[in-house]
Simulated scan of single mutants.
Amino acid sequence: MAIVEETTLTAENRWMKLAHDVLAGARLSEEDGLAILRSSDDELLDLLSAAFAIRKRHFGKTVQLYQLMNAKSGLCPEDCGYCSQSKVSDAEIPKYNFLSRDKLMQGAEIAAERGVKTYCIVISARGPNEREMNAVETIVPEIKQKYDLKICACLGLLSQDQAERLKACGVDRVNHNVNTSKDYYEKICSTHTYEDRIETLSAVRNAGIELCSGGIVGMGETDLDVVRMANELRDLNVESIPVNFLNPIEGTPLHEQGRDLTPRRCLKILAMYRFANPTSELRIAGGREIHLRSLQPLGLYAANSIFLGDYLTTSGQQAEDDYRMLEDLGFEVTKCDEAVVGQQPAS
């Protein structure tokens, strides 16, 4: 699919034409993905309007809320350059082993009170050890029975057996981000490969668990890397895509990156992800507050999900401010996973 020449269509019409093509089943090409990222700021509202046509067809005006629980912090043997919990980070963060049952249940209670759909249990590790697997297998059924929350587990690299055990205990989704394009991955990590991550995603899919996988933008990658990551996630048929904007944490190898991310650039990235992945849940994840800043509400015309509260080692926006933002937008918080059907894109 190649976009119609700008000389023959207005910005409004060319982006809406592309949206209609996507809604008709066309796949976003690298050429069109690059055109979105490199479009003029003057076209931004037209671009977001077209992205919203896709979002509205599949998700209406609903927003899914997620809450993170950092169940094990720091102590990670991997060398991911962006991460404050890695072995190469000097960032001052809390470091502790797997949290107690009471603390995990307390977090689940808060999530339920906030109207959150999915409670995300995250550990810093190359992969879970047997004690951690047992802890997850014990706590997940209890959380689901008491609070009726969906559970997303982010435990690092998984074997097929571990994935099947997570399925058996009731885990609904596993998060394992590809983080960047295949070509750029070796620039951000050397202790495991992009292919290792794909193998984990394959194990999760084979176990019958939904995939949550996204990435981080602002690590020094090119526009083409950003587009290729979006298309790779499309090819994996990922159900939920968190888009993180690098929070350059002092003490990490990449703490000087991410400085060129502007709110307008972030909005174009979110729009491109919506065009590339029209039916996937698209979440504005880490870095939302520091990079989108006052333009955060506009991001939800492309995305349909956000994290509520804090992230793993960094603070998020106050939950009350997020509720107010959604109310001001006229959007509805929902726990429903079903896509909105039968709605037509805006003309």
Rank of each mutant, 00 (worst) to 15 (best):
N277T: 06
G309N: 07
A285G: 12
M325P: 10
S305D: 03
F307R: 07
R324H: 11
D322I: 08
E289A: 14
Q318V: 07
K268V: 04
H291W: 02
L326G: 05
T314F: 01
Q257G: 05
Q296L: 13
S280A: 15
T279N: 11
M325S: 11
E250S: 13
L267S: 04
N304S: 13
A303F: 05
P297N: 07
R264W: 03
Y273Q: 03
N277Q: 09
G251M: 05
I249N: 02
L267C: 07
Y273G: 07
G299A: 12
T279E: 15
Y311V: 14
E256V: 11
Q296D: 13
G251R: 06
G286D: 06
M272N: 09
D260W: 03
E256W: 05
A303R: 00
Q317D: 13
A302Q: 01
D322T: 09
E327W: 05
D321T: 12
D328L: 09
R293N: 12
I290D: 08
R259D: 07
R288I: 04
R283M: 10
L267E: 02
G286L: 03
I306G: 10
C266E: 01
N247M: 13
D321S: 14
F307G: 10
S280D: 07
R274N: 03
I290K: 06
P263D: 01
M325K: 06
L329F: 02
I306P: 10
P263M: 02
K268G: 11
S315Q: 15
D260S: 11
L295Q: 13
Q257W: 02
R293P: 07
D260T: 12
D310Y: 02
A319G: 05
L300P: 04
Y323M: 15
L300A: 08
F275H: 02
N247A: 12
D322E: 06
D321A: 15
M325N: 10
Y273C: 10
L308G: 09
G251P: 11
L308K: 05
A302W: 00
D260V: 06
Y273T: 04
S305C: 14
Q318N: 13
P297F: 00
Q296R: 14
R264N: 09
L329H: 07
Q257V: 04
G309S: 13
S305K: 04
E281G: 10
E320R: 12
Q317N: 11
S305G: 12
Y323A: 12
L270T: 00
L261F: 03
L282F: 02
L254V: 06
Q296Y: 03
L326M: 14
I306L: 15
Y273S: 05
H255Q: 15
G251L: 08
P278Q: 09
G316D: 01
T279F: 05
